[in-house]
């Protein structure tokens, strides 16, 4: 298994260096115009929040996998995880608001020892919970085998990455044997009703391209995934969400090392879609880091670009003050505005 950028002491572990790479390319050629320039042309600068619909809490960078495209640089060697005290601050903030959805991500969020406590508390507040489950965690250790039942008890919407219905393409991105373990976990989720029609338990899959290309039609890929996973593995799910890989962290490393960086950025820039730009998820999301710092999205979080607001930590949460901020943008944002758009909920147009 490869290690995180941080464990390898790779230059890209430094977010300032990642931002230098992203902005140098901007200066290098007129073909990569500044993202702010495109937003201005679309009448969207400064980019402002709309109604806050999702509180996305990143409960830590610890993960049982080391995926090649991970924008979090997560892995077993990452120890940064959210404490119960910080979780309580998130719950206090949540209770003050009508935010309907809480999206739990990581790392593998389930590896945080207070994960189940957090789910129970959010559930008690009557909010919808999304967990971004990497699937393999369910079969990684007996203590996680009951996660499907736990999720079902709290009506958690499970959103899981499975980049391809072919084992080879999934394993190339997520690690050897991940596809087989993911199928086992999907079957365990299906057994408790997840993805099964009429159960009310939602199981969505996430498709990230396993390489330097953009996702194709969400509808077409969903149909193909349903056919192939159903026919070959007897697995069912609800929706396929296509997500474009952003040039951040390990995916940025992959792009640079494979010589695809410039052409990938050019593809994203050429596919800029003003409708997708108007619908970017950062306008309706508040992202909270493991240490309670606030960000416009999980990508900004990983680039250490905090919110441009006097309120920068969840302990100081103030919805109206945050609503007046301008969203922090950079060249990586082209990933969310390309083609049919991309967000943690799939396409945006």
């Amino acid at each position: 298994m490869t290690k995180s950028l941080l464990a390898r002491q790779a230059p890209l572990a430094d977010t300032a260096y990642q931002l230098t790479v992203l902005t140098q390319a901007e200066a290098a050629g007129a073909q990569l115009p500044a993202f702010a320039h495109r937003l201005r042309e679309s009448g969207l600068l400064p980019l402002q929040p709309t109604k806050l619909g999702v509180m996305q809490i990143n409960v830590g960078k610890m993960c049982n996998q080391v995926c090649k495209h991970c924008h979090v640089d997560a892995g077993p060697d990452r120890t940064e995880i959210m404490t119960r005290e910080t979780m309580q601050l998130c719950l206090d903030a949540l209770a003050q608001t009508a935010i309907p959805v809480v999206d739990l991500t990581g790392g593998a969020p389930e590896m945080n020892p207070d994960f189940r406590w957090l789910v129970e508390q959010i559930s008690a507040l009557g909010r919808q919970i999304i967990v971004r489950c990497n699937l393999t965690i369910i079969v990684a250790n007996p203590k996680y085998h009951d996660l499907p039942a736990f999720f079902a008890r709290h009506r958690v919407r499970v959103v899981s990455s499975l980049p391809h219905f072919a084992a080879g393409r999934t394993d190339a991105q997520r690690g050897d044997g991940v596809f087989g373990r993911s199928i086992r976990a999907l079957k365990m989720l299906n057994e408790v009703g997840y993805g099964v029609e009429g159960s009310g338990l939602t199981l969505d899959l996430v498709y990230n391209p396993a390489g330097a290309f953009m996702p194709g039609s969400q509808v077409g890929l969903e149909r193909e995934f349903k056919q192939r996973l159903g026919r070959e593995h007897g697995v069912v799910f609800n929706n396929l969400l296509t997500i474009t890989n952003l040039p951040v962290s390990r995916f940025l490393e992959y792009l640079l090392e494979s010589g695809n960086y410039e052409s990938y950025m050019q593809k994203l820039v050429a596919a800029y879609n003003p409708v997708a730009a108007a619908n970017v998820m950062c306008r309706s999301t508040l992202s909270i880091g493991w240490d309670g710092q606030l960000y416009d999205c999980d990508f900004n979080q990983m680039l250490e670009l905090p919110v441009a607001s006097p309120v920068r930590h969840i302990r100081d949460f103030h919805e109206t003050t945050l609503a007046g901020r301008a969203i922090v943008i950079n060249q990586h944002c082209y990933g969310c505005t390309a083609g049919a758009g991309s967000s943690c909920g799939g396409t945006t147009t």
């Binding site: 080879g168 391209p209 290309f213 996702p215 194709g216 039609s217 077409g220 890929l221 995934f225």
Partner: peptide, 12 residues
């Protein structure tokens, strides 16, 4: 090749 990958085709 790019388009086939984007549309979800695999190597086989």
């Amino acid at each position: 090749t790019t388009d086939s990958l984007q549309k979800g085709a695999d190597e086989a």
